[in-house]
């Protein structure tokens, strides 16, 4: 059977994950990768599942969860993908006063040099805006040049930016 991409979004309360995964187990789906967080207090979960149930069946099975309108769920078929490195990994940190356009201004510079963002979190805390991203840079991109370009882009929206090598050590 094909993989399914399932998203559950909405009002947070205890038990959503237990109910969701209970439904998925009952229809015979195995959870492969999943991630869940609270976005501004909203429950946000995404899963990739494998198993013998089609998208329509799963969406219907999740009906109990979405019936009162506090949560929405979507299910769709996705192809298998590989986690592929497209170069060396860097961690991009941005922080500064909140204003429109920070994310787009900064990530545009990453895209220009062919950088691929593999993980991203942004948080707004009071007036402070923070972005943390993991970026794969291709061999053709010069990190020092990108750092300069990022600095210039960041200055136009009044934030600070740093780019540092992200290493992992095998033990």
């Amino acid at each position: 059977m094909p993989l399914l991409a399932i998203t559950v979004l909405g009002h947070d309360r205890p038990g959503i994950i237990a109910e969701t995964t209970g439904v998925l187990a009952a229809v015979g789906l195995n959870i492969e990768d999943s991630t869940m967080t609270l976005l501004r207090g909203h429950f946000a979960m995404m899963l990739i599942t494998d198993g013998d149930a089609d998208a329509a069946t799963v969406e219907e099975a999740l009906g109990g969860l979405t019936a009162d309108g506090s949560l929405s769920a979507s299910v769709r078929v996705v192809p298998a993908e590989q986690v592929v490195s497209r170069g060396s990994a860097y961690l991009l940190s941005v922080h500064g006063g909140d204003r429109p356009g920070i994310v787009s201004a900064v990530v545009a510079e990453v895209a220009k040099v062919g950088g691929n963002i593999t993980d991203l979190t942004t948080r707004l805390a009071g007036d402070l805006y923070v972005l943390i991203a993991e970026v794969d840079l291709p061999a053709s991109a010069d990190p020092a040049t990108l750092q300069t370009a990022l600095g210039a882009a960041a200055a136009t929206v009044g934030v600070d930016v740093t780019l540092r090598v992200l290493e992992s050590d095998d033990l």
Partner: peptide
Amino acid sequence: EIDHCDGLLFLDRVADAHALHARKTYL
């Protein structure tokens, strides 16, 4: 290594729920 001898993996000590990462396949 001492953790290994005590039956613990780094997975038992990961700093937070988003601190676990898939190792990428190098092309």
